[in-house]
Amino acid sequence: MEWKAMKIRIVSLFFLAGVFYGAAVFGQSEGEKLFKQICVACHTIGQGKLIGPDLAGVQQRRSEDWLTRFIRSSQTVIQSGDPVATALFEEYNRIPMPDNNYSDDQIRAIISYIAENSPGGPGAAETGGISPAPGRPLSEAGEANIQAGKNLFEGRTRLNNGGPTCNSCHNVKNDALMGGGALAKDLTDAYSRLGEAGVKAIVGNPPFPAMKQAYQNRPLTETEVFDLTAFLQHADRVRDTQQAKNYRTQLLFSGLGGALVLLLLFGGFWTRSKRGSVNRKIYDRQIKTI
């Protein structure tokens, strides 16, 4: 083959690859990006309830103004006494939807993405609705997965991407575990509350602000999400036979013990340091002359 023709082919190959790559990266609209990043952890479009309601056709049920306020801060709308918001909050087990600091344009983009993928929308016929990637069903999980999940939860196995261990913020009542953190929710009955899809969605793509921050740039892998969900399901099942641990009192008393040791060290090490005031010596000396 002639070199010139070869060159043209190589260049056009690179050109085409560039075009496809560009289409894959930039073809995603803002609304799609945000929905798949955040909303999909708890909501589907046309695939039924998850942790929160199915959002198919929500743009027809509520006004844009209402949706904007609710997406920004659902708790503010609920606390203002809005009857629809309060009813939703009660219906979905009082699990608060996290606040989102989006601009009006971003919220409009999300709403139009929902509209496109709702039944009757242009995207719906193609996608059949939006829901989190199904992944491996939990029914396949065995003892090994539960054990692996337990080790991940407690930190005996390190999370692959370097995220903080679950038990630094969460507790699960389980005899095999050290008592976990108390910053965030106790997860002993998380599986009953959220179900398989809910747990997987939150672990894999945390919507809560502090947790989102903690796993930013260090997400859990698919296997880790699977094992952790298996462990949480197991922990939920056996919870009635497990003993709750009180690390609060233990921390308090071991801290007091440690403090006492430190004070003894100070008293013992610095025995020769001057403790009486200089003035007292002068004062005493003066008293003696009288």
Binding site: P164, T165, S168, C169, G181, L183, A210, A214, Y247
Partner: peptide, 19 residues
């Protein structure tokens, strides 16, 4: 905080450091 929002030494590094 140390008693009631355990375990602070980890979540400080994960949540407060970025802030």
């Amino acid at each position: 905080v140390a008693l009631n929002a355990r375990w602070g030494s980890t979540w400080f590094a994960a949540v407060l450091t970025p802030y």
